[in-house]
Computed example of a mutant assay.
Amino acid sequence: MSDTALLALGATLLCCALAVGGLHFWASGRAQRRALVDRLSGGPLHGPTTRARRFAAIDRRIRRTRLGRAINLRISATGLDLTAGEFFTYAVAVVVALWLIAASALAPFFGPVAAAVGVWSALIFLNWQRQKRIEAFINQLPDVARLLANATAAGLALRTSLAMAAEELEAPAGEELSLVADQLTLGRSVDDALGELAERLPSRELVVLVTTLVLSNKAGGTVVGSLRNLTHTLEDRKETRREVRTMLSEVNATAFTVPLLGLGSLLLVNSSNEGALARVTGSPVGQFLMLLALGLYGVGFFVIRRLGKIEV
């Protein structure tokens, strides 16, 4: 083999090695970028996870739609270790199952009604998880204010104080403050990072804390005294919210009991007289009356929930 052929073969092997190395670095960088985007732009806030993601193709497609972005935003506020594709797939499976169960156990008319209830329940589940996370975060706000006051009194900057508080606190406050600290590390301003936190977990207590931190960061002043006074105020509000939630627990239980009584009566009627619901919903008048009854149960549920909702 001539020297020219050997030189060409060596160059070819070198180019192949460089191509493989470049492809490896490109794939690694893309994976890191995707993990960073998921962490900072609406992915789960639990940090790195080794769980294999399901329905990756569905997740990539649904994230490009407005519905997928809305679902992803709601999931990011709940702290659930789910992707938009996983939640969408599970919700569709539950809706189809409810449709089939209601159509077979009651009457075909109740299939679409059960599917609509399933979609509404999925949204309610996300809102419930979000509110649960907000309540847990509010309960940790006195500790957040105390840690920030101590760190500021020790001479640390606000960015460093937030990072230290993120390391000291448990979830969800630790995860949320860690996200804020990561955003500050990437160059975002304190106003934007804390403002996004207040939008993600809206509450009066958090708005007061964020406003205090933003104003002190802009204008300076005795932030230590303000944070310590805010700590005592948040402790008092925490106890007040706990007492109110205990007093309203019976009202909230009644709100869910009323629709369950309606469902139980339908099952009782259909079991005592097989095919009764199918005959009732077989005419337009029967369908209208059934929808009216279901609507009244829904109105009762929302009215009871509204009466038991007290802003503290």
Rank of each mutant, 00 (worst) to 15 (best):
G79P: 00
I75Y: 00
T83L: 04
E86D: 08
G85V: 08
A84V: 04
R64P: 09
T89M: 12
F87H: 03
E86T: 06
Y90F: 14
G79E: 02
I75L: 13
F87V: 01
R69I: 02
T83F: 00
T78Y: 03
R66K: 11
D81R: 08
I71P: 00
A77D: 03
I71Q: 02
I71K: 03
Y90W: 13
G68T: 02
A70D: 13
S76P: 02
I71N: 01
E86M: 07
Y90T: 08
S76N: 10
L82N: 00
R64Q: 11
N72H: 12
R69H: 08
A91K: 05
A84Q: 01
A91W: 07
F88E: 03
R74V: 04
R63K: 15
N72S: 14
A91Y: 01
A84L: 04
R69V: 06
F87P: 00
T89I: 08
G68M: 05
I71V: 11
F88Y: 13
N72P: 04
L82D: 00
R69L: 09
I62L: 15
T65W: 08
L80I: 09
A84M: 05
R63I: 08
N72E: 12
G68L: 02
A70L: 09
A77C: 07
A77S: 15
T89K: 06
T65A: 07
R74D: 09
L80S: 08
F87T: 00
A91G: 07
R74K: 14
T89F: 15
N72W: 06
R74Q: 15
I62C: 14
S76Y: 05
L80K: 13
S76V: 01
S76W: 04
R69S: 07
L73Q: 10
L73N: 10
S76E: 02
R63A: 13
I62W: 09
I75P: 00
L80A: 15
T78L: 06
T89H: 10
T65E: 10
T78S: 10
A70K: 10
I75G: 00
L67G: 06
F88W: 14
G85P: 02
L80N: 05
A84G: 09
R69Q: 11
L67D: 06
D81N: 11
A70R: 15
I62G: 02
R63F: 10
L80Q: 13
A70M: 07
N72Y: 05
Y90N: 11
T83N: 03
R66W: 15
R64W: 14
G85D: 05
R66Q: 15
G79F: 01
L80V: 12
A91I: 05
L82G: 00
